[in-house]
Design a protein around this nucleic acid. Structure first.
Length: 125
DNA sequence: TTGTTGACTCTGA
DNA sequence: CTCAGAGCCAACA
């Protein structure tokens, strides 16, 4: 799979390493990807090839909600994917990030040619 | 090259 | 907790 740029490739490597049953926010992916802003991560997700193996459904916004996309209602599919992995949604359609949020130390398992283990750990609570 | 857009986040009220 | 507004930066016209 050839991606549009090394920028996107970095994001996709991070997303692919999110464990099943966990979710990460755009901002978190942005931090791990070192130099990006959350919007760029969202932009990259919109450009994910439909035939890829990237678990884009595990990336949600900072409120713990599925981000509304500009077209269509693919968000419903995303929610079904996550529920199939055991993630529960509350009445407002929100995920409890304290339970299902991806903790940065897990990213030791990331296998990528770019990954730099010396990153700030801020989201570890 | 300038202007708009967007699967976002932060801050203040 | 929620709601607005400002800021963000790559992609696109």
């Amino acid at each position: 799979m050839v991606y549009k740029s090394s920028l996107y490739k970095r994001i996709y490597v991070v997303v692919r390493n999110i464990p099943p049953g966990k979710v990460a926010t755009y901002g978190q992916v942005a931090k791990i990807s070192v130099v990006l802003h959350a919007r760029i991560v969202g932009y990259a997700m919109a450009a994910v090839p439909p035939d890829s193996d990237i678990p884009w459904q595990r990336v949600i916004n900072h409120q713990g909600k599925i981000s509304p996309r500009s077209s269509g209602n693919g968000g419903t599919i995303q929610r079904q994917y996550l529920e199939a992995e055991g993630i529960r949604f509350d009445r407002n359609g929100r995920v409890d990030l304290k339970i299902y949020g991806w903790k940065y130390p897990d990213s030791e398992r990331i296998e990528g040619d770019f990954f730099n283990p010396e990153l700030p750990l801020e989201d570890t609570k």
